Computed example of a mutant assay.
Amino acid sequence: MAMTRFSFLLRLPIILLLADIYVALRLTIAAPPGITRWLAPTALLLIYLLILAGFFTRRAVGKPAIDAIAWAGFLSLGLFSWLFVLTLLRDALLIAIKAATMADGGIFSDSAISLLHAASALAVLVVSLLAVLLGLVSARRLARVVDIEVRLPDLAPALRGFTIVQVSDLHVGPTIKRRYVSAVVHAVNELSPDIIALTGDLVDGSVASLSEHIQPLAGLKARHGVYAVTGNHEYYSGAAQWVAEFRRLGFQVLMNQHRVLVRQDATLVVAGVTDFSARNFDAEQASDPLLALHGAPANAAARILLAHQPRSARAAEAAGYDLQLSGHTHGGQFWPWKYFVPLQQPFVDGLHRYGRMQVYVSRGTGYWGPPMRLGARSEITRIRLAG
Rank of each mutant, 00 (worst) to 15 (best):
123 A>R: 11
31 A>T: 02
44 L>G: 12
106 G>E: 00
50 L>I: 13
81 S>V: 05
126 V>M: 11
53 A>P: 15
136 L>Y: 14
36 T>D: 02
90 R>N: 04
25 L>Y: 12
33 P>T: 07
78 G>R: 10
135 G>N: 05
56 F>K: 05
68 A>V: 02
118 A>H: 13
26 R>Q: 04
38 W>P: 05
28 T>R: 12
69 I>A: 13
69 I>M: 15
81 S>W: 08
70 A>K: 04
83 L>W: 02
128 S>E: 00
89 L>S: 07
85 V>Q: 09
78 G>N: 00
39 L>I: 06
131 A>K: 02
95 I>R: 15
108 F>H: 09
117 H>P: 01
130 L>F: 13
130 L>H: 13
55 F>E: 08
124 V>P: 00
53 A>Q: 15
37 R>P: 13
48 Y>T: 14
101 T>P: 08
103 A>G: 12
33 P>K: 02
91 D>V: 06
79 L>H: 01
93 L>V: 03
50 L>F: 13
39 L>E: 01
132 V>E: 01
131 A>E: 00
116 L>E: 07
86 L>M: 05
106 G>C: 06
35 I>P: 07
110 D>L: 11
57 T>R: 11
35 I>L: 10
82 W>T: 03
82 W>I: 02
66 I>F: 11
46 L>N: 07
132 V>W: 10
134 L>W: 12
89 L>N: 05
99 A>S: 14
86 L>T: 09
31 A>N: 07
46 L>F: 13
95 I>F: 05
125 L>Q: 10
33 P>Y: 13
119 A>I: 02
83 L>S: 00
53 A>Y: 10
36 T>E: 05
54 G>A: 08
112 A>K: 03
84 F>Q: 03
112 A>Y: 03
121 A>T: 02
125 L>I: 09
92 A>P: 02
131 A>I: 06
122 L>C: 06
109 S>E: 09
33 P>M: 15
55 F>C: 06
72 A>C: 06
131 A>N: 01
131 A>M: 03
121 A>V: 04
69 I>Y: 15
56 F>P: 08
122 L>T: 12
58 R>D: 09
62 G>E: 10
121 A>G: 06
78 G>W: 00
84 F>I: 01
55 F>I: 08
